[in-house]
Amino acid sequence: MSVTTSDPGRSVVVTGAGSGIGRATALLFAQEGARIVIADVDDAAARAVAEEVEQAGGTAVTVIGDLRDQAVVDRVAATATAEFGGVDVLVNNAGIMDSMSAAADTDDDEWERVIGINLTAPFRLTRAVLPHMLAAGKGAVVFTASEASLRGSAAGAAYTASKHGIAGLTKSLAVMYRDKGIRSNAVAPGGTITNIRVDADRSTHGPAALAPYTGNAGIPSRAEEQAAAIVFLASDAASNINGAVLPVDNGWSAV
C-alpha cells in the first residue's frame, strides 16, 4: 500500500509551501498527481515550487499573502474551489518561531504575531474549507504541530502556547467531525533542517532556561521526512487515524 493517496486527482492546499516542510510536502503530493494550491507569503518562492510541482507530475496554482488576513484565507479556499472543485486535503503548515522568550519577556507584538500565524490562521483556513469537505462527505486536515506541542521545554512562551493550541484544535476537529468523514491529525516535528529562523538572545532568561532541554533534540530531520508523515496522515492508508499528534522527532519526545 502506498503511503500517499490512492486518488491522484486530490485537491490539496499546502500553506507555507514556498520552502521547508511545506515545499517537501507539496512535491511529495505532486508525485501522486495531486492538484495543489501553493499558499505562501513569498511570491517568488511559491512560483518556484509551483514549477517544481508541475515537473513532478502535479498541478499547481499559487495564492500569495499573509494568512493572518481573512481576505487571504478566503482567497485560498475560493481558489481551491474554483480551480479544483473543492478541498480534499488541507495541510496547515505555515508557521514561525518565537525568540525563545519566557513569559515575562514576551511583548504583545511577539505574542500576537506568533499566535496569529501559528494558531489563528490555521483555525480560520480550516473553518473556510470545512463546508467544502462537509459537502463532499470526506476530507483530511493535517497540521504541523511541534515538539513544543508536547512539552514546555522546546520553545518560548508564545510558540509553545501556539503549538499546544494546534494540538487541541487537531483533537477537537477529530471529535466534532469524525462522523462526517473528515479526519484531523498533526505531525509534531523535532528539530528539522529548514529556513525557519530562531532570533534568540542566548543571555536572556528563556533561552538560558531551555538550553539544558533542547540539547536532547538529537540529529535534525530532513524536511522530506516530515513530509512523508504528513502525506501518510492524509492518505487512505491512515483512514482510521484521527485526532493523533504524531511525533516525528527521532525519539526526542521519548527522552
Rank of each mutant, 00 (worst) to 15 (best):
P247T: 09
Q70A: 15
A136Q: 13
E112A: 08
L27T: 06
R23M: 06
A174N: 09
G190N: 03
R183D: 02
A94D: 02
G168Y: 07
A244S: 15
T25Y: 00
D40A: 06
A44F: 11
N92H: 08
A223K: 00
A24C: 07
I182T: 01
T192V: 15
S101L: 03
D249K: 07
S19L: 09
G206K: 06
T170Q: 12
P8S: 15
A161R: 09
S2F: 11
A158W: 04
M176K: 10
G137H: 12
Y177L: 15
G58T: 03
N250G: 13
G85M: 09
L67W: 13
G86S: 14
D7V: 15
F29Q: 12
A56R: 03
A140N: 09
N250T: 09
K180T: 11
T214E: 03
V72Q: 10
I36L: 12
T62L: 05
A34I: 02
A229V: 04
A80Q: 15
A254L: 11
D249G: 10
Q31K: 10
V3A: 10
G218A: 10
D249P: 04
A104Q: 13
A80P: 15
A60L: 13
T81F: 07
G181M: 06
E32L: 08
V53A: 11
D69K: 10
V61D: 07
A227K: 00
F123G: 06
A223Q: 01
A30I: 12
G181F: 09
G22S: 12
S11R: 15
G243E: 00
V76G: 01
D109N: 12
N250K: 13
R10Y: 05
A167C: 15
V76D: 02
G86N: 11
R113M: 07
V198S: 04
L125C: 08
V129Q: 04
P122K: 13
M1Q: 05
A121M: 12
S239Y: 05
R113G: 04
Q70I: 14
A50W: 03
V76C: 13
S253W: 00
E112V: 05
A154D: 12
A80C: 15
T59W: 03
A140Y: 00
E51R: 15
M176F: 07
E32A: 13
D107T: 14
L119Q: 10
G191S: 15
D107K: 14
A161L: 05
G33N: 07
P220R: 05
T194A: 03
A39G: 08
I196T: 11
A188F: 00
N185V: 01
N216W: 02
A34M: 02
D98P: 14
V255A: 14
L233S: 06
G58W: 02
A229F: 00
A56D: 05
D74M: 06
D249E: 10
F123S: 07
D108L: 10
A188V: 03
M97I: 08
I182C: 04
A121C: 09
D69N: 11
A254T: 12
A60V: 11
A228T: 04
T120V: 15
R202Q: 11
I117Y: 07
Q226N: 04
Q55A: 15
A254Y: 02
V87I: 10
G95V: 01
Y213H: 13
N185C: 02
G206M: 00
N118V: 05
V142Q: 02
E32W: 11
A50K: 08
